[in-house]
Amino acid sequence: MKRITLAFLSFAVLVGGSVAQAQDKYPFKPIKVVVPFGAGSATDIVIRIVGDQMRHELGQQIVVENKPGAFGILAIEEMVKARPDGYTLQVGNPGTNVLAPIIYKDKFKIDYDKEVVMVSRMGEVPLILAATVKDFAPKNYGEFIALAKANPGKVRYASVGVGSNNHYDTEAFAQWAGLKLIHIPNKGGGAAITNDLVSGDAQVALVNAASSAGVIKGGLLKVLAVMAEERMPEYPDAPTLKELGYASGKGLWSALYAPAKTPPEVLDAIHKATVAALKSAPVQEAFRKQMIKAVPNLSLADAKAWNEMEVAHWRKLTETVKVEKPE
């Protein structure tokens, strides 16, 4: 109950505080972080864990607001339209903050590249190339490739939607491996595509390592390969796609963003608090339990450079990979 009171109080402070502007040092009131996904989603959990720790670093509450919709555009614009004073931030992932500004550029009412800056990456979860056990024989990567090559246009893969980063990632991999697969999109998100594999609607998919762990352990899915920098201790026999020669495989990351017009000293304070929270023991412990790796950018310049690299990577991907692109 105390927490509720606290949340209500902080809300009251949030409303009242904007009257007395900026006599104090940043931050003098709670900070709102807009999440482009529903509460309980992977990205939402990351900011709630990190935010709980940032509260200790900054001495102010981090208030999470979930605003899903329109590929993340609604959340991003809510942040950009707020005053760029460091009290409204946003978390995003490669889908909302890199891919959407490229392929849905015309749906934005703002110029994303000019209005938004990356503060730091936060966490990265490995993606697993998983296969169903239902009427699907391959037990490892080699057998899967052999089967898919022998049956072009027969093996089905699931993704979280047409034009999603998950869709592009899988198509890019398939193109590299020389496979022709059938796409079974599911708007229901990560848990839904895991279920598509369990029920046999789809046969392979790139799934979030954390949310699929229980189902894999229960023998309903097989691990073919891991999309991450190194092999996972949980699946020592599963090769990384990198080992197999596929260079652009990366896990699913989340990052904190701020309006580009935020004063530099405020940006700096947010960056410091984010990195400190990511390095703290409670966050590391909570991340470890969910197979998330803390991946802070050590400086704002580093975050900027990293972001540019990622944007270039996705830009190339969207140009070279052919998907049934939505119009």
């Binding site: 189902v215 229960g218 309903l220």
Partner: peptide, 26 residues
């Protein structure tokens, strides 16, 4: 299976995974 029937259950899965409990048949 870790499949939420609705938004409230999605949050409960979140609460479980925070503790490192992975929903699964086992």
């Amino acid at each position: 299976l870790g499949i939420p029937g609705n938004a409230v259950m999605a949050l409960m899965i979140g609460a479980l995974t925070i503790h490192g409990i992975q929903p699964g048949p086992q």
